[in-house]
Design a protein around this nucleic acid. Structure first.
Lengths: 269, 269
DNA sequence: CTAATAGTGTCTATTAGACAGTATGTT
DNA sequence: AACATACTGTCTAATAGACACTATTAG
């Protein structure tokens, strides 16, 4: 082990590895639930993302996305994403979508590393195993001043990571990104790009349901949409739009200090 | 030179190159104009794409996208895309957008080649130099039966390339693609992916104007939208939407056998 | 004048936004 | 009963679709 990043880089022999390396980084999104202390108040649903604390240089002790190098002889990028997802969550058959390929020359201090990022949307309730002890779910809060200035706050209960973005062009590599130095590599950029993609896609796809449990309430579903979009929605409007995407069941949610909601299922067409 | 693909592959030493190679392929889109023979009829605008005929194995004599290997020591993928665009069209300062990274294991028979594709939208009127003699513009015609079945026809006046797509999943690598064996590599898939992206993006961005000349008519602009979307639009509706994106000039189009249109310019906000 | 497209006015249909009301559970 | 949320009815505003009409040029 090394005592500083400087020392680490001095001892890092680039020839030990391939000159050009390809990695896959994973944005694993899910829905988290924050219980309220008041028995009458309902719990608040948020979108959350899984980050891992690095235990070696470079960027030791900073948070990063789960990821890894691909095996160029046997793996596609998607295979690699599936492998990492399995390692991290023990889940398979999960919604996975290629996000973007990040490749600025100095994004990794060791050597040229090009990373193709994938988004995974999972239902946390399907998790059986315990998380890797270095991994942690961060709740996402989205603030938007206008289309060009966005602020994202990540919070795992112990640490807060803030990211602010200024989009001057439509070229991701020219975004002006500031974070509070708690994220490794260019992962602030990757995370924001993923959140943006998600926010666009919820308007014309059904991907949100990949993060929902089998049975859910319309109020809960609406909260997830609200946290992804970063704004409140009106109940009647939301229900009108979502109506033909869900099936009403005869189940009800129980144990809340108020009128119980009806549980719905996703209707795939 | 070799006489067959088989012979070529036998003589191809994978060790001469890096084991894993990265390339950039370019979808260069523009607007083409097809003059009508009747002086009264107006010319028809279509979307078109630049393809190059391969002059060596693999896929000798088939059409492919302009592309090339990146220099991993000095170039980003975007740099590489800019270089290829410059080589092919002598243009710079052009709209470029990363499309997708294609990486199925056997997409190139030589070795593992991963390709990140970029879309370039150019105004053909800015072209000064002659095209590379192997290059040719193909007009694009889009037929859509439903959301999941799409047919694309490429035509350069001498050759027709047809592509049909059946989208069963949202994973590009699982699309069922058929073409009439005139396209090299997986470029049918790349082209269709780009057309899809373009078709989605015209609805919520102003990218079309990157393909338009400085002065254009609303009728011409509408035709470009129609060819990208693969359907007719109603004039008043189109003009309502486009109204605040353009500036009326005091110029008029001349020499048509009917009422001349007013020329407009793009109003960037 | 004629052919052909340019461009507009207006009605209708659909969708989105807003608000206020009723309904129904727990404690 | 009180609280808190679930759920709905209905009005209004905004947007999209449709059609018919007028305008203007070259030849």
């Amino acid at each position: 082990m090394f005592n500083s990043e400087e020392e680490f880089l001095k001892n890092y022999n680039v020839k030990d590895f391939k000159q050009l390396s390809l990695t896959t980084d994973l944005l694993i999104f899910s829905v988290s639930e924050e219980d309220s202390n008041n028995y009458r108040k309902k719990s608040i649903k948020k979108m959350s993302i899984l980050l891992v604390k690095r235990d070696n240089y470079p960027y030791k002790d900073l948070w990063c996305l789960p990821g890894g190098f691909i095996n160029p002889d046997t793996e596609t990028l998607l295979d690699c994403a599936k492998r990492i997802l399995k390692d991290e969550t023990n889940l398979s058959k999960i919604y996975l979508e290629q996000l973007y390929t990040f490749d600025s020359l100095n994004r990794d201090p060791r050597c040229r590393v090009i990373s193709t990022s994938y988004m995974a949307l999972i239902d946390k309730n399907k998790l059986t195993n315990k998380l890797n002890k270095k991994a942690s779910w961060f709740d996402i809060t989205l603030f938007e001043n206008d289309q060009k200035n966005i602020k994202v706050l990540l919070d795992n209960g112990l640490e807060k990571i803030s990211i602010t973005i200024n989009k001057k062009t439509n070229d991701f590599n020219n975004y002006v990104i500031k974070d509070n130095d708690k994220l490794a590599f260019d992962h602030a950029l990757v995370i924001v790009t993923g959140i943006e993609r998600l926010r666009n896609k919820v308007n014309y796809t059904d991907i949100v349901f990949n993060m929902m449990p089998e049975y859910f309430t319309l109020g809960g579903l609406q909260q997830v949409y609200e946290t992804i979009l970063g704004k409140k929605l009106l109940d009647p409007a939301f229900r009108r739009i979502i109506k033909n995407k869900v099936i009403k069941t005869n189940k009800k949610e129980i144990g809340e200090g108020h009128r119980p909601s009806i549980l719905y299922k996703y209707k795939c067409n």
